[in-house]
């Protein structure tokens, strides 16, 4: 009988401290400890990202492919690792470029290139492997060439389908908030490490 009561007490405690008012069990120092722990996790992720940025030389070293314009090489949800490097850009390279007034960067291949003798400036024209025409129609009005400053990174590595979670979270924002909330609660309530 006493065994059953123990179980009941434990269950009641669990419901009271973890479900009805999870914060009741965490007071003072414990709360502070949790906050620091949570901060550490966020800081770790940030440090990892910034280290990758420094090593790769690209401002966003990992991108997820969002469109099918590079099929069959890259599909939606594939992960690309970008580098920048100082070597000259060449035709046939796959680059990620950003255009003013366009929120989402584009992953396409360089098909034409002209490098000026005097200034060293490069004029680039890109095209998606799966597109019938080059990207002139995507560039803003009056822009006929891309330049090095438009390039965010050059594709160096590839992982098929490794970014499907990002696609899912992009399509369903609720999922993103559920995941962030879940992670937050998990870290906050998980006192036993």
């Amino acid at each position: 009988m006493s065994g059953d009561e123990d179980v009941m007490t434990t269950a009641k405690n669990f419901v009271r401290t973890r479900i009805i008012n999870p914060f009741k069990a965490l007071r003072g120092r414990v709360m502070l400890e949790q906050a620091i722990f949570f901060g550490l996790i966020v800081a770790n992720a940030f440090i990892l990202w910034k280290t990758l940025t420094v090593v790769s030389g690209s401002e966003s070293p990992i991108v997820v492919v969002l469109s099918g314009s590079m099929r069959p090489a890259f599909d939606r949800g594939d992960l690309l690792f970008l580098t920048m490097g100082s070597s000259p850009l060449r035709v046939g390279e796959i680059v990620v470029y950003a255009l003013p007034g366009r929120a989402i960067p584009i992953v396409h291949r360089i098909v034409s290139l002209h490098e000026s003798r005097s200034s060293g400036k490069v004029d680039l024209l890109t095209k998606g492997d799966n597109n019938d025409v080059d990207d002139l129609g995507l560039y803003p009005r009056g822009v006929w060439w891309l330049h090095r400053e438009n390039i965010i990174g050059r594709a160096g590595g590839f992982a098929r389908g490794a970014g499907v979670m990002t696609i899912a979270m992009n399509d369903m924002p609720q999922l993103k908030w559920a995941m962030i909330g879940g992670l937050f609660l998990y870290v906050l309530l998980n006192r036993d490490g």
Partner: peptide, 20 residues
């Protein structure tokens, strides 16, 4: 495998011209 052929030549104003 993506395979391509490109032409390359220098010109008066450009050190490098490349066209797939």
């Amino acid at each position: 495998v993506f395979v391509y052929a490109y032409a390359e030549w220098p010109s008066k104003n450009n050190a490098v011209n490349q066209i797939v």
